[in-house]
Amino acid sequence: MLDEELLQERLEQYQPEPLVDTTNVKTKETIESYIINEDENNIDLAKTNFLNFLDHEEIKQSAENIIRKYGVGTCGPRAFYGTTDVHLELEQKIADFMNMEDSIVYSYGFVAISSSIAAYCKKSDTVFIDKEANFAIRQGLTASRSKFVEFNHNDPINFKKQVENVIKNERKPSRKFLIVEGISWKTGKLLPLEEFLKVAEEFKIRIFLEESYSIGIYGDHGRGLTEHFNIDPERIDMIIASLEAALGSIGGFCAGTHSIIEHQRLSGSGYIFSASLPTFLVQACIEAIRLMEDRPKKMKTLAKEFHLFLEETCEYKVHSDPESAFKVFTTKDETNRKEKEEEIHLYCKKNGVHFLKTDGGLVINLYIDLLDKKSRLEMAYKVLKEAADL
């Protein structure tokens, strides 16, 4: 046994690493916050409302009717008084929409991604991820404690090289997973899905596809990359996505085979321990899928036009895919890039065009209503062009 003096000495010497890095944490007071009142002098390109579902009258009326029947929440997890017939209807609707056997709905998009990863990937597994993988994916891997190997952004050749290197050096074979984003949260770039699938299938690697920013946007019916590239969804083990982007609600889902989805009902922590998604938000998703119609085609038209404008008229450097619903761009002049971005952002803000400024560049979130309101679109074009010419 340690004597009391030695115990105290060792306790004083013990300096564990913090669970969370707080060195760059901003206080509430230092984070800029203001309300954008959309009118003839202001246009909001900061919020995510790609398909104009946030203020859709039919969706609001349908959600109100559900509140009158079910209230605003079940106050319990899905497996404990938290499931209603509306939850089951949405899960079936998503499965049918994605051409998959089954689906499961979570109450928070971030947790849908992180929990579903942790439900399958274990400490002894090897997971291959993009160097630009989003925070939700990385949190899922932290929870799983799996070994992860990074490859260059959207680079299937480098991915194959990393797989071969792992296989060559591992002492005993491990289960292997590939987790990729259809549209990168950070760069807006489109994943070359077929090339990644070929490598994964060659080495028998399980494939998880995260489609938060491609569902509702890519493919003629908004089914994401499988429809966009005409790829059989059965080649993908699981499709994961937030319901908080194109569908304009809250929550997230996973779609796959019945056995893959059923496993999460017993081991998906975000499903087991979180209160279920409020029923009126479930209904909002059902209505959004029903109202999808030709919205993805309209978004494609707008996205490509806006992309062309930024590149050719303003001569900005656009990182995101031409069909991406959000545009990540910066100035072509690398000299004092940050200062120039700040200048562009401030000018646009003062002249009523509001969008985001991030570490990766400037970010504009489009919405299809701009196609019908040409004066709003022309206003955005005019201000962005003036900012580029500063």
Rank of each mutant, 00 (worst) to 15 (best):
C75K: 08
T313Q: 12
I113R: 04
G73T: 11
C314K: 06
H354Y: 10
I59K: 06
A275F: 09
E323R: 00
E211P: 01
Y316I: 01
I104T: 08
K350F: 07
E386M: 04
V25K: 15
I260R: 04
A119M: 10
S116M: 13
G73P: 04
L193I: 02
A380I: 13
A241M: 11
K382G: 06
H263I: 08
K69W: 03
G224R: 02
K189I: 01
P156K: 05
E323C: 00
N152I: 04
F53D: 14
R206N: 11
D155E: 06
Y14M: 14
R175T: 11
K168I: 06
K349H: 11
T83I: 12
M98A: 13
E101C: 12
I207L: 15
A255K: 03
S375M: 12
H153V: 02
E29I: 03
F253V: 08
K176W: 06
F53I: 10
L390D: 14
L362R: 02
P77G: 02
T335P: 03
R68P: 11
K385W: 11
W185T: 04
A275D: 14
E12V: 05
S267Q: 09
L377C: 09
R265L: 04
D125N: 04
P16L: 03
D125M: 05
V383M: 02
L88M: 15
K385Q: 09
S124H: 07
V318K: 02
K382R: 12
K382H: 09
C121F: 03
E211V: 03
L45V: 00
L247W: 15
I205K: 07
S276G: 11
E181F: 01
E64L: 03
S274P: 11
A325Y: 09
E150D: 13
R145I: 06
K298Q: 14
K327N: 04
H221G: 01
S124I: 00
E4S: 09
C254L: 08
H345F: 13
A288F: 04
T84L: 13
A112S: 15
K374D: 15
H228L: 05
V318A: 02
P18S: 12
F80T: 15
D125Q: 02
K332A: 00
N49A: 04
M299Y: 09
M98P: 08
D96Q: 09
L277S: 08
M238F: 04
V318S: 01
L178H: 08
I66L: 14
A303H: 05
